[in-house]
Design a binder for these strands. Structure first.
Length: 548
RNA sequence: UGACCGAUGGUGUAACGGUAGCACUACAGUUUUUGGAGCUGUCUGUCCAGGUUCGAAUCCUGGUCGGUCAACCA
């Protein structure tokens, strides 16, 4: 937002409501413009004590359908916004828009034009060359009114006539060169059925719908900036003085390591590079939802991103920060081993099983604890053991001690290997004096997560990573394609072992797998086959150190 | 070769004409039964040139760079 629009906001809202406006028809809400716009609109309304309407600008029946509307509605609701009973459609106003158009015709400000699409394109000129006036431009208001009425009645075939605003064919702003207001289009509309065979264009319907809804701030993305003079022209020529809506523009959101254009996203979906619009790698609301993002994290993200008119590229790290911040506070902890290696505690009784108390969430002590079974045979993370460790490796290695989280301190005595030299079993001894919570003062540098071999659950783990390997996939070399930089490792499916407490989790339940990352149960999961999506890893300063 | 819009650390975003702040990132220290989280600190910025002014990120002029606009799409 620029200075003046900000000032307008600060002054408070004249009377009622905010914004509205919905693009129609994405298969999914993209976080780039629609989501940002939703958060912005509803956020502003909240902040300035206004109201935000939800309006679908359904002016083109060939490009809209009820599923689009429903998916937008579901996503907005999921984000946590409530438009109460203020769900509107431009099609609610078709009759009024028709009357307003007739008003302009009577004033000599609009005319019916018989040019073909090609003729019109040819006569439009270019930004530097003025266009030519339509030969039909000077029909009388009476004739125009009659023709317009007959357009509505269906007396003309599709594409043979349009209603145009009479403005200025030599304007440097192409949108002011007698823009089309209505076209003839015999298409079934998802709300008005076959009642109409003429449909208003966006520019015509939009501002007038804002006016009819008493909108004060109509917010849209930057590319509509050049439409604003037309937006205002309609209001002026309709002689609207009171309660004039005003259009404000903001820059859409760009994120690195992904693409944001609908066309490219569609290409990824149709080419099978991802599994649909709600693939957890997609920058869509439904994708992020499935990935495990919370509505709160997306709203926080939208706030942190800010609003301005300059082009911007937001670092994916900010999005990740927002979800980690939320999940750290709210996700219950659980232990899960992604790449298991067997660990045997030689001095632990064969048939003994201890039920250990493990903190559910250290950020919320009031949530108490869960029970985790501990026994002689365990699995730990393969990378938590090194036979020949570098310095500063605080994990397990021969002769060294670590704590098994919530359990005991153990010492590695020896390892077994297969013929290829891979470690198959790590043999340890435990110190019975060091049980968690029993006051042992013995300190060790490292703490490992683990699962009990006889009690753990198998689970499919879908490890997601950024979709592209480069920050700006759109920046392609000659002859290249944005898909060239697709990250082949953006989805890795593995089998992991998880502590038994997750067995009753339902789809959508989020956890922190201690020391590894945040995961949520996918919709594909079942009691027979658990499936988790990795939302985001934990920050890993050890990995970072090693990377250097 | 037109019109419109924009330009503040690596990335975003603030600052009635009056101390350039906040967040993310990065780095360092501290703490820790998650190498997580927390806490403390550090680095890096007003596109350029003129002008107005006691004083300019802010106002003016001219450049430079970037974006947008020529569907019966939205």
């Amino acid at each position: 937002m620029n200075r003046s629009s900000k000032k307008t906001c600060r002054k408070g809202l004249p009377a009622v409501g905010f914004i509205p406006v919905f693009p129609r028809n994405p298969m999914a809400i993209f976080i780039s413009d629609t989501q940002k716009s939703i958060c912005l609109n509803f956020g502003l309304a909240e902040k300035y004590n206004g109201k935000c309407n939800l309006r679908f600008d359904d002016t083109n029946p060939t490009k809209e359908n009820i599923e689009y509307v429903n998916s937008i509605r579901a996503d907005v609701k999921w984000l946590g916004f409530d438009w109460e009973d203020r769900e509107f459609y431009a099609s609610d106003y078709f009759e009024k828009l028709y009357e307003l158009a007739a008003y302009l015709i009577k004033k000599g400000k609009a005319f019916v034009c018989d040019m073909t699409v090609e003729e019109m394109a040819a006569g439009r000129g270019t930004p530097t060359i003025p266009g030519k006036e339509s030969p039909w431009r000077n029909r009388s208001p009476e004739e125009n009114l009659d023709l317009f009425a007959r357009m509505r009645k269906g007396e003309f075939t599709d594409g043979t006539k349009v209603l145009r605003a009479k403005i200025d064919m030599s304007s440097p702003n192409m949108h002011m060169r007698d823009p089309v207001m209505y076209r003839i289009m015999r298409a079934n509309h998802h709300r008005t059925g076959d009642k109409w065979c003429i449909y208003p264009m966006y520019d015509w319907a939009h501002g007038q719908s804002d006016y009819l809804e008493n909108i004060t701030h109509s917010v849209c993305t930057l590319e509509f900036e050049v439409h604003r003079p037309l937006y205002d022209w309609f209001l002026d020529n309709l002689d609207i003085q009171e309660n004039r809506p005003r259009q404000f523009e903001f820059a859409r959101l760009n994120l690195n390591y992904t693409v944001m254009s609908k066309r490219k996203l569609l290409e990824l979906v149709e080419g099978g590079y991802v599994n649909g619009w709600d693939d957890p790698r997609m920058p869509t609301v439904s994708g992020l939802r499935r990935r495990g993002y919370t509505p709160a994290s997306i709203r926080t993200f939208s706030e942190k991103v800010g609003v301005a008119k300059r082009e911007n590229v937001i670092d994916m790290a900010l999005l990740e920060y927002c979800i980690r911040e939320d999940l750290n506070k709210n996700a219950p902890r659980v232990m899960g081993v992604l790449d298991p290696v067997k660990l045997v505690i030689d001095n632990y009784p064969d048939d003994r099983v201890e039920e250990l108390e493990a903190t559910r969430n250290p950020e919320k002590p009031e949530e108490g604890h869960r029970i985790v079974p501990f026994s002689k045979n365990l699995y730990i993370e393969r990378k938590d053991f090194m036979e020949d460790p570098p310095k500063k490796f605080f994990r397990l290695s021969p002769g060294k001690e670590v704590r098994l989280k919530y359990a005991y301190i153990i010492r590695c005595e020896r390892v077994e290997k297969d013929e290829a030299g891979n470690i198959t079993e790590i043999h340890c001894t435990y110190d019975p004096q060091t049980k968690s919570g029993e006051g042992s003062t013995k300190k060790v540098k490292g703490t490992l997560h683990w699962v009990s071999a006889d009690h753990c659950l198998n689970a499919e783990l879908r490890l997601y990573d950024r979709l592209f390997e480069v920050p700006d996939p759109d920046d392609v070399a000659e002859g290249g394609n944005f898909k060239d930089s697709l990250n082949p490792g953006s989805l890795q499916v593995i089998n992991g072992l998880i502590e038994p407490s997750v067995k009753d989790g339902v789809a959508g339940q989020r956890y922190q797998f201690e020391r590894t990352g945040y995961f949520c149960i996918d919709a594909d999961s079942s009691p027979e086959k658990l499936v988790f999506n990795r939302t985001v890893t934990l920050r890993d300063s050890w990995a970072k150190m090693q990377g250097k």
